[in-house]
Design a protein around this nucleic acid. Structure first.
Lengths: 219, 219
DNA sequence: ACCTGAACACCGTTCAAGT
DNA sequence: ACCTGAACACCGTTCAAGT
């Protein structure tokens, strides 16, 4: 009868103990994407992080795009689906806010949002959203309009905000703002309104008010 | 005194008559992007289209990203800026619709929409938008909220619609829709509402109604 | 069934050199 | 000032071969 001796444990290869699975590939991909962005994810680096050859990945995945699709869907596990409440608007607000939050936490994700095939996690969240809107009395075309309005708003917001935040050149934002104020003759309203002035308004608050505008008009 | 003889004309090199300029580079880039998408634009292919060596481009441009930035801004020449009318809502509607149209005509563009530095053409259109909203009585925080709401909505809409339309696999959309209906137990609302059913609603109309929802609630 | 190694056809970018 | 050629350090993907 064999007991798990400490020597046997030390004999085990320490670098790649578990077998390669889709799950481990996706987890490693998200880590790399978070750290180095979408251009930082290469099949070779992903394989290296998993202690494996690049070509080994192609047994588990057809093309690199599949890895991106899987990673994109995977992060939406972070969007909770609480039990519906009587306040359908509050449910929608919480969902959309969490949706935006997860995309801002993974800044590489909004650019991938237009993926042709939504994964199961995205579909589940969309189901939750449409269910809440349905409780609010929306149906048929109005339901489709508001679903798209909310989804496209949150995607656009996450896309612009995330790329704006981690601008390669940190001074580029100030440069653009300066370009506006210097050419104030061409951009009188933008100059006055403080467009691209990062300190003027809080992004979270602006997003929330836009959301309220949609929800106030719907239903 | 020299006259332009036909022989002299024929002597001129036919492949690369004009000198390389940023303008010519951007024009060629847009052509390539329209034809092959963002992955189809490489510095080598771009150079070949211009009858020049890939490395020659680096005299006119610092990195490839600059080409993408220039191309993205360039297409917004196609968004007209008509004289403002007394109906500010109509002005906004026309601008946002044209904004969406140009992005759908250049399906590679929405994914680039989050570029850290907006170009002069985008800024000019944003100025036009904020001027119209200002005529509608919006100011300060309300102006910022509605500007972002409209801009992010149109960007998100263009992103999802464009990638949805030229899905690599044309049957993938139907597959996803089938996945919903087959798992109707998990997606009861999506099944009933016809989510991802391309034929159910007209995209242009849904977008327009979402736009009207925003404009109806604003101001 | 699952992974390796070698190979193919590409990339973006740098830099010395030409004109 | 503007472009070429060679070179560097990479890519995604295929495929025969190993276990």
């Amino acid at each position: 009868m064999e007991t798990t001796s400490i020597w046997l444990r030390d004999d085990a290869p320490p670098t790649r103990p578990s077998p390669l699975t889709r799950e481990r590939i996706v987890d490693a991909a998200v880590v790399l994407l978070d750290r180095d962005g979408v251009t930082g994810l290469t099949m070779r680096r992903l394989a290296q992080a998993l202690g494996v050859t690049a070509t080994a990945l192609y047994w588990h995945v057809k093309v690199k795009e599949d890895v991106l699709d899987l990673a994109f869907d995977h992060i939406f596990d972070e969007v909770p689906l609480p039990d519906p409440t009587p306040d359908w608007r509050a449910d929608v607000r919480a969902l959309i806010r969490a949706w935006r939050d997860v995309m801002l936490r993974h800044p590489w994700s909004p650019g991938l949002a237009g993926r042709p095939v939504p994964g199961p996690r995205v579909l589940t969240r969309t189901e939750y959203l449409q269910a809440a809107l349905t409780r609010g009395g929306l149906a048929d075309r109005d339901l489709a309009v508001t679903t798209r309005l909310l989804a496209n708003y949150v995607i656009g917001a996450a896309l612009t905000e995330s790329t704006y935040h981690r601008s390669a050149d940190p001074g580029a934002r100030a440069d653009t703002r300066r370009h506006i104020t210097v050419n104030a003759a061409a951009y009188p309203v933008l100059t006055a309104s403080g467009h691209l002035d990062a300190d003027r308004w809080d992004s979270d608050e602006l997003f929330g008010r836009g959301l309220d505008t949609i929800l106030g008009a719907a239903g």
